[in-house]
Nucleic acid binder design. Structure first.
Lengths: 191, 191
DNA sequence: GAATTCATGTAACTTGTTACATGATTTA
DNA sequence: TAAATCATGTAACAAGTTACATGAATTC
């Protein structure tokens, strides 16, 4: 639903080709947004039809032609409109496959649930470490490219990631404790 | 993607009609999963074709006929298979429209961002209060229906919600502080 | 008597994914 | 020279939403 806005937002930084946009997704905002290359191309066409972006063909002496897109004034104001209108449903999409799984997991019993949450906990701890390196790279990158003014905004975005992972870790630890009590109860009943 | 599993999980509790399933979504797990009635009917047909559920027509003396679905053994083992296979991408969908918005919000400037996050903070605080009442209702409901054994599993699910909202509140408070510093900087520059 | 809820669906559309096609360039 | 990467797409499919249709029952 917000792919067009994501594309406009990225093109605001600099003009890019479809391929470059895909790369940008993959190695920067991949943590919270990704897209298929085929859909990017489809969407770019639509955005151009609407006059939100314009294209320029570049026939370099090497390789195939590139079509580089840049955002238009109309596109930027479209983006700003979207940003100004805060959605009522605060999460924009209340679907959470993770919570659905957790709820249904009771069908497998306390021990299986414990095992799965334990596995998640380990992954969360790894993610936390990875985010730490992303943070370091980001500061460095923004300083190098002279975009230091963007730093506080990016930090706010990144910080959300930290809070999210930390809350998962705390939840997992608490849940494991609850499940351990349940497992003990079941075992004492058997006797 | 997991609508069929959600339906199977709910039918595991008790046999229901399409309409009842929609209501169950709306007033119980709506916090993390919802579905359109049209899609529920479509999916129920598919599930029956696959033998995962079976239907029984009930022609009461009042109102139109009801088609009540119940889960089959084959359906339950299908559900258990899905639950046993933990997806590699732990979140199942890394797309986070909220983070995308936050990142792009820098296009509107620090003051607008501050205002929007302030609004969110207030909503989060309300959500926290609402979740509190959901928790109370749930305990009561499970005790009344004699499903006390499910209580720890439901608590784990609910608890995830609490951690989530709390992490949003903390993040919002920190972000507002950062933005206030930015706004002060900008104002002192003007002078 | 009108509006809402109950209960079932169909049709058209939008969004997103997977698989495939093409051809040049670079790297192992 | 084979594989990977660059750069563009098309086609078919899967999943989800919106709008519409039908008719009985209940509530205002």
């Amino acid at each position: 639903m917000s792919l067009p806005h994501a594309l406009l937002g990225l093109l605001k930084y600099m003009p890019m080709t479809g391929y470059e946009l895909k790369k940008f997704f993959d190695d920067s905002i991949n943590y919270f947004w990704s897209a298929q290359i085929s859909q990017i191309y489809r969407e770019l066409k639509k955005l151009e039809e609407n006059g939100y972006i314009k294209s320029a063909r570049e026939s370099g002496d090497k390789g195939p032609d590139k079509i580089r897109y840049s955002i238009t004034d109309s596109g930027f104001s479209f983006l700003k409109d979207w940003l100004s209108n805060v959605p009522e449903n605060i999460d924009e999409d209340n679907r959470n496959a993770f919570l659905l799984r957790i709820m249904l997991l009771s069908n497998l019993g306390a021990e299986e649930m414990h095992m799965q949450i334990q596995m998640r906990l380990e992954k969360y701890r790894k993610s936390l470490a990875e985010l730490e390196t992303v943070r370091e790279k980001l500061s460095f990158y923004l300083e190098q490219t002279g975009n230091v003014d963007l730093l506080p905004f990016w930090k706010i975005t990144l910080n959300r990631g930290f809070h999210d992972i930390k809350s998962h870790i705390e939840w997992a630890e608490e849940s494991l404790a609850v499940l351990e009590i349940e497992i003990k109860k079941l075992k004492s009943k058997k006797k």
